[in-house]
Amino acid sequence: MKKLMNDPGDLVVESLRGMEAAHGDILRVSYEPAYIVRADAPVRGKVGVLSGGGSGHEPMHGGYVGPGMLGAACPGAIFTSPTPDQIEEATRALDGGAGVIYLVKNYTGDVLNFESAAELCVSAGIPVETVIIDDDVAVQDSSFTAGRRGVGATVLIEKIVGAAAERGMGLAEVTGLARTLNEEARSMGVALSSCTVPEAGKPTFDLGADEIELGIGIHGEPGRERRTIRPARELVEYMSEAIFSDLPFHRGDSIIVLLNGMGGTPLIELYLLYGELERVARTRGLHIRRRLVGNYITSLEMQGFSMTALRSDDRILGLWDDPVHTASIRWGS
């Protein structure tokens, strides 16, 4: 294993130090317990938007802390959910009197830890609502599993819900919006290579030189099936079919898409993939109204990509266009 770090056990904290040094105008970092909060928190009278999860998915979530997106983010150890004490402290630092919404990706550990934190905060008098994000179509949703995983839709939902909170919407309205967005979003990913958890020291799984894992999760969890690599065009078609037929999306729908790199895929390939996605969407009569192309929810140095589509009306597009100023997403003023 070769990684740019000092001691594997210090990676998360040392990265947070760098982040604070680079973006001190936007965010503050607490180290014990670890959380990132927007520099102007708490914002009086506005709902706080809080997310968190294991580290190793950067820029998610710390890169999205700032005006117009997240109020706070709680980073866990690599691929490990944050703990209730972190979330509780971050909630206290963030709450401006209008309550806090937790945006939680659907993984057993994340759900249990956020649940414990919400109990602590509610009993301390801070209103908290939780919305679970579960957009990954690669995983069967049934009573026999922990349900679908939360992946790329998280980025889009954090942006739009953050805009709603910034506009001054109340906790109930923001929560309803977040639930609607989750219902309207679908994603799927593919891996060309594994990633290596620094403290584990070796790749999480092995893929043959010409093999890919379709339906990969953001922690290297296996997905639907393993296949021999195909041309990008065919991969995008396969994943589009899985995503667009799942909601399903209909001819004429407006969508926001995220064409996301898993951390180890160059932009030249991501743009090629986006071009293919545009073509597929056009043949299906879907209108891509907004898009993000780049590394937004990653899996350490994994090679691969994911696609997310979110059905959007004018209200959602308006919130999307609202100003945002974070380390990794900024537009408007």
């Binding site: 294991g54 150890a77 703990t83 209730p84 057993t108 550990g109 414990s116």
Partner: peptide, 9 residues
């Protein structure tokens, strides 16, 4: 506080 994941809770 320290374990995280599902096994912490």
């Amino acid at each position: 506080k320290k374990v995280g994941g599902a096994s912490g809770p």
